[in-house]
Lab assay of single mutants.
Amino acid sequence: TGQSYENMVTEIMSMGYEREQVIAALRASFNNPDRAVEYLLMGIP
């Protein structure tokens, strides 16, 4: 849902990432938050 997506974005942003980076990582990871954080740390393949 939209609210849980926003919660994911906010939670990952709280780790120090910009909203645009978080959204790009979530898009690349098909909204998998664990993989999105991994992409933010290691780069999107």
Rank of each mutant, 00 (worst) to 15 (best):
T10E: 11
G43L: 06
I12P: 01
Q3T: 14
R27H: 13
M13D: 01
A36H: 02
A24M: 07
G43T: 14
A36W: 00
A24R: 10
T1M: 13
E38R: 13
T1G: 12
E38K: 14
G43D: 11
F30C: 13
P33I: 06
G43M: 10
A24T: 13
A36G: 01
Q21H: 10
A36C: 04
A28Q: 10
E11S: 10
N31H: 06
T10F: 13
L41Y: 10
T1W: 06
V22R: 00
Q3G: 11
A28I: 14
T1D: 03
V9H: 00
R27S: 12
R35V: 12
V37Q: 12
P45W: 03
I44T: 15
R27L: 07
V22M: 00
Y39F: 14
R19C: 04
G2E: 13
R27E: 09
D34M: 10
E20R: 08
R19P: 02
I23D: 12
A25C: 03
A24I: 07
I44S: 14
E18R: 10
A25M: 03
Y17E: 01
V37H: 07
M42Q: 14
N7Q: 11
S29E: 06
Y39N: 13
I23L: 06
R35E: 14
A24K: 10
Y17L: 02
M42I: 05
I23V: 12
V22A: 10
L26M: 07
E6I: 04
Y5W: 07
A36R: 01
T10G: 08
N7R: 11
Y5V: 08
E11A: 06
P33H: 14
V22G: 02
Q21S: 10
P45K: 03
P33R: 15
A36D: 00
T10R: 10
A36Q: 05
Q21E: 11
A36M: 00
F30P: 06
P45R: 07
N7V: 09
A24Q: 13
P33D: 01
Y5P: 06
I23E: 14
E20A: 12
Q21T: 10
A24D: 12
Y39I: 12
L26H: 00
R35T: 13
N7E: 11
V9C: 04
M8T: 11
S4Q: 07
R35K: 12
T1S: 07
L26N: 04
L41Q: 15
N31M: 10
N31R: 04
M8Q: 10
L26S: 01
L41M: 15
M13Q: 04
Y17I: 02
P33N: 02
Q21Y: 03
I44Q: 15
M42E: 13
P33L: 08
I12S: 00
T10N: 10
S29N: 14
T10Q: 12
Y5F: 13
G16S: 14
Y5E: 11
I12V: 02
Q3C: 13
M42G: 14
A25P: 01
N31S: 07
Y39E: 10
I12H: 01
E20T: 08
I23A: 13
L26P: 02
T1C: 11
Q21I: 09
V37W: 04
P33T: 04
R35Y: 05
P33K: 14
Y17N: 03
Y17W: 10
V37I: 15
P33G: 05
E38M: 05
F30D: 14
N32T: 05
A24G: 11
E38S: 05
I12D: 00
A28R: 12
